[in-house]
């Protein structure tokens, strides 16, 4: 297990380094000069050259990348052009809001999705299965920002059950959860459908396998076979999908944060892109990238914990 985890984490570090490099190059290719943007239209050529030198923009791309990595390892992601605060501080102020949003969305949608998937699988082709199927596909088809807008209009504006904007009073857990409900619902809903379909499909496949027949032939209770024997196998592809799904949730979180005016990484990226605040764009996208690599790695490790065949694979 330790060997598997070490290998997988090593690989993740390599992937993270490569994606950060790629990211750096892509940002570099975006038209527009950060120094010129900062100084405004009336800056002289000397002033621009001076700032470019201070920001390290006069060095070659390779040098810039190496310097960037060196700084990154020391936790330095550069300075915000406008507020002159460290980017790392800004990003880590926003990160908890996005993490809370994504993790809560994953948690509720996976729980409900797995339940609905099992529910459908054991009632295969019944009316209940068909209704669940239609619901699941509708959830998948509904874009997160549409759900966000309509749930805002219905539950916050009209019914006033939940607050419309913000992330709640810092330190007040109840209030924070209160503010989390609608955005989490909006970005998690399509995942309920997706996970329900996936779990149903893999449950049906597994319930037809020989070992389930054996379990039945030994008279094990049907609930036991479904939830302790089959689900443990059927959950494996779902874990992988949730790992990859973190990436999609990160982008869905952007919509939710805009619609609900929540602080968070998504909102930070959008704001900094519109103001051409490159260090902040770089810093927040970098953290998102690392978050994504970490979540896929974590899902691999969870799969290895659940499945001895993966764990012991040479």
């Amino acid at each position: 297990m330790l060997k598997f985890a070490t290998k997988r984490i090593g690989l993740a570090l390599v992937i993270a380094a490569l994606s950060v490099t790629l990211l750096f190059i892509i940002i570099h290719l975006i038209p527009g000069d950060p120094a010129r943007t900062m100084l405004g239209p009336r800056a002289t050529a000397e002033m621009i050259a001076d700032l470019q030198a201070r920001m390290g923009l006069d060095k070659t791309l390779v040098e810039q990348i190496l310097i960037f990595f060196g700084n990154m390892l020391r936790g330095d992601l550069g300075m915000d052009i406008f507020s002159n605060r460290p980017v790392a501080t800004i990003v880590f102020e926003q990160l908890p809001h996005t993490l809370a949003l994504i993790l809560s969305a994953i948690a509720w949608s996976a729980t409900l999705g797995i339940f609905l998937g099992c529910f459908s699988a054991v009632r295969r082709n019944s009316l209940a299965d068909r209704i669940t199927g239609v619901l699941a596909v509708s959830f998948i088809a509904a874009p997160a920002f549409v759900i966000a807008l309509y749930s805002l209009l219905l539950f916050a504006v009209k019914l006033k059950w939940f607050p419309a904007i913000g992330a709640g009073e810092p330190g007040d857990i109840g209030d924070i959860i209160w503010h989390l409900v609608l955005p989490s619902f909006a970005i998690g809903l399509s995942w309920v459908g997706y996970i329900a379909r996936l779990v149903r499909a893999s449950m049906l496949e597994i319930m037809g396998e020989g070992h389930v027949r054996t379990a039945r032939a030994f008279g094990l209770p049907e609930n036991w076979i479904t939830y302790r024997y089959a689900l443990k196998l059927a959950i494996l592809p779902t874990v992988t999908v949730i790992g990859v799904g973190m990436g999609f949730l990160l982008s869905a979180a952007v919509f939710a944060e805009i619609v609900f005016s929540r602080p968070g990484l998504g909102k930070l990226v959008i704001d900094s892109i519109t103001t051409r605040n490159y260090p902040v764009v770089m810093g927040s996208v970098l953290v998102s990238t690392i978050l994504f690599v970490a979540s896929t790695t974590l899902s691999d490790i969870v799969n290895a914990i659940l499945d001895p065949r993966i764990r012991q694979a040479k």
Binding site: G210, H211, R213, T214, A215, F218, G219, L220, D307
Partner: peptide
């Protein structure tokens, strides 16, 4: 009656057991 008075051995031993549970767990579960 299944697993107490009537038992079965199946054709394909590679598919008979649950792959993610230990043999011990499966033998005590029954």
């Amino acid at each position: 009656l299944r697993g107490t008075d009537i038992s079965m051995v199946f054709q394909d031993p590679m598919q008979t057991h649950n792959p993610v549970l230990t043999i011990g767990r499966q033998m005590t579960d029954i």
